[in-house]
Amino acid sequence: MRSRNGNYSFTRTVLIFLLSSLALDAKEYLISYRYVVKDATLYNESLSVSSSMTKCVGKPTKSLNLISYGDDDLKQSILKNPELFVDYVHKLGLQIESKDITKNFVNSSTTILTLKTTCFKVDFNENLVSIAPLN
């Protein structure tokens, strides 16, 4: 990594500064998501996003890039890209809880899919938001 002019220490200093500045933008968020399907119709959907109060442990995996809509508002970014986020959450894995009741030969079903509260590392860049769960 020695530069052509031999100014090695200067280049290293600049790189360290740039990397540290990028790392400073990374935040940790707790995200939980849940939707309810009742009798084959989407009944309820809830998304909870909050910044983590404590340091999360783990390494980021399977990142997703969403288009940022300014103000570093992660929830808005997710709500503006619902299809991408839901497909991504499905890939991560959802807890499934399904209950069917057949009363006097009439059936009704309720299926709840839940992403349990998970810590995500979130990087806000100019136009993109990168989120990755910490496992």
Binding site: K91, L94, Q95, I96, E97, S98, K99, D100, K103, N104
Partner: peptide, 18 residues
């Protein structure tokens, strides 16, 4: 007089593809 059937399932599914 009354016939009731309850079915339930609980699981964790990941890496399913559409």
């Amino acid at each position: 007089k009354r016939s009731t059937v309850h079915t339930s399932v609980k699981a964790m599914v990941r890496n399913a593809d559409i």
